[in-house]
Design a binder for these strands. Sequence first.
DNA 1: CGTGCCCCCTGTCAGC
DNA 2: TGCTGACAGGGGGCAC
Length: 290
Amino acid sequence: MPELPEAETIVRGLASPLSGARITGVRILRPDLVDGPLPSFRQGLHRAGIEEVTRRGKNIVLRLDTGARLVVNLGMSGRLLWRPEPPGDPPPSHPGVILDVEGGNPAAGVPSSSPCSAGTLVYNDPRRFGRLRLLAPDAWARWSSTLGPEPLSSTFTAAALEESLQGTRSPLRSFLLDQRKVAGVGNIYASEACFLAGLHPRTPSNKVHGQGARRLHRGLRRVLREAVEGGGTTLRDYRTAQGWEGSHQHRLRVYGREGRPCPHCSAPIERIVFSNRSAYFCPRCQGTNP
DNA sequence: CGTGCCCCCTGTCAGC
DNA sequence: TGCTGACAGGGGGCAC
């Protein structure tokens, strides 16, 4: 489900309640969601302090005072929900892992008589494609190094992207979905970035050079920044840590818009399927199937 | 080694 | 109303 902008939005919503908090309880309702041995997962989290909430690609990362990191990948339907005490909303439908937390900052916008908050962090996932893993510092470093550059970082340049594109003949959409090439891009923003770059999603990656690579770099960063500003794209499952919908679904240019007019030229948007996934594009602005 | 395909699982919706 | 099939934002494993 979530791509970089959705993960970033969740991270921002968790920073206040979780930073400086302590995990006081670990409840594992769906053991298949935990990667690795259950006892070490449980013991590694219990009584640990949370120092920072960050992100790597599409993954939400809680850095603990033990040096370990809890890495949460939401798969297609995962949610990571902060439920302050006392809970205002009904409990979510498919809880998989619940962390009891004490001592963070009060939930933003929620009046509180005490300077600290207590609540639960619920990982909810009907389809159970998501995974939670607890990584020691060396394992974290190894895992992080398998992911490509962060597309919104200053080190992600058009020149670096162009060089990486030359390494494969596979379709541009496949390149963008490959987390080893660029971290955090999924199916929605891959289509959106190809559109902004004026490149057909099937274009062989190594045929994208020069101006094309610069347009792709610019379009990718633009759409990811816009989507972060909009709080992510809610098509069905995605919610923020507070359970709210994003708003970027109203700003999608081509994704999910088969038959609707292209925002540039009004030609009907087309949908094609390859690698078992849909890609949306404007046949006029993005050329024909190469 | 790189690449593409299948599958993991549940929920929803269109069409009959 | 109820059944069936298509489809869904991800990613690991495997065959080629």
